[in-house]
């Protein structure tokens, strides 16, 4: 079996960008699922912890987790490769240089948002993944959300992610060759909506920081008592 064609493919400029695009799109999809899961916090502790137990006891989950890790690594590797080459080949030395309107804040800051996301991800892993889970996931998460420092970092991470996806989502389609006068505007809009959705992470954390859940929980008890 000869698989040198894979090597040949990923060493071309468009090939490695395709890797970046596909992994990016899948990671974007994962983030939407992740957001949906976070919304389950609103269903209360029992439901949430039940869901997490279901996930952790599921034999498929380790594979999914490994897949996710692979996607991250592929995305980072391809991205780094592209960016290092670009750094070496970029026009250099313009004394005055004005951007002409093609660039967006999102596209211009991809490298920085990528670094921020990676840093946040490390923090995220250290605070949620590689810690003692005995207190229960609901308590762990909502507890963290009551810390202003944690929420500040969390909001910054979500903002970086949103900015990253504001360029990344539509860019991935372009890289994969999808550009059409009818659909591209929709794709761009969709990409922005996905990016905007990332703000949802921040809103959830702010919701707990502000203690809104406590107030509504009390209200909820009263309803139960009357019943």
């Amino acid at each position: 079996m000869d698989i040198t064609f894979i090597k040949r493919f990923i060493t071309t400029s468009i090939g490695r960008k395709a890797v970046m695009a596909v992994s990016g799109l899948l990671l974007g999809g994962f983030m939407l699922v992740h957001l949906a899961e976070n919304l389950l916090l609103f269903k209360g502790e029992i439901f949430y912890n039940g869901w997490v137990d279901f996930l952790l006891s599921n034999p498929i989950t380790p594979f999914l987790e490994a897949g996710l890790l692979a996607l991250f690594l592929a995305h980072i590797a391809a991205g780094t490769w592209v960016r290092v080459e670009d750094f070496l080949n970029a026009p250099r030395g313009y004394e005055a240089r004005k951007w002409q309107g093609g660039r967006t804040i999102g596209s211009a800051t991809m490298l920085y948002t990528a670094a921020a996301i990676l840093a946040y991800l490390t923090y995220h892993m250290l605070t949620f993944r590689f810690v003692d889970h005995s207190m229960g996931f609901y308590q762990m998460v909502t507890g963290a959300f009551r810390s202003p420092v944690f929420v500040a970092v969390y909001v910054a991470g979500a903002a970086a992610l949103a900015l990253h996806l504001s360029h990344g989502m539509q860019s991935a389609f372009q890289t994969l060759g999808v550009n059409h006068p009818k659909y591209t505007p929709l794709i761009k809009l969709g990409g922005l909506l996905v990016a905007l959705a990332m703000i949802g992470f921040a809103l959830i954390s702010v919701y707990y920081l502000a203690g809104i859940d406590l107030k509504s929980a009390e209200a909820g008890y009263q309803v139960v008592i009357i019943k």
Partner: peptide, 12 residues
């Protein structure tokens, strides 16, 4: 030449 990162300055 560098890699395209879809910034679209060229089109502009």
């Amino acid at each position: 030449f560098g890699n395209c990162t879809n910034e679209y300055e060229c089109e502009a």
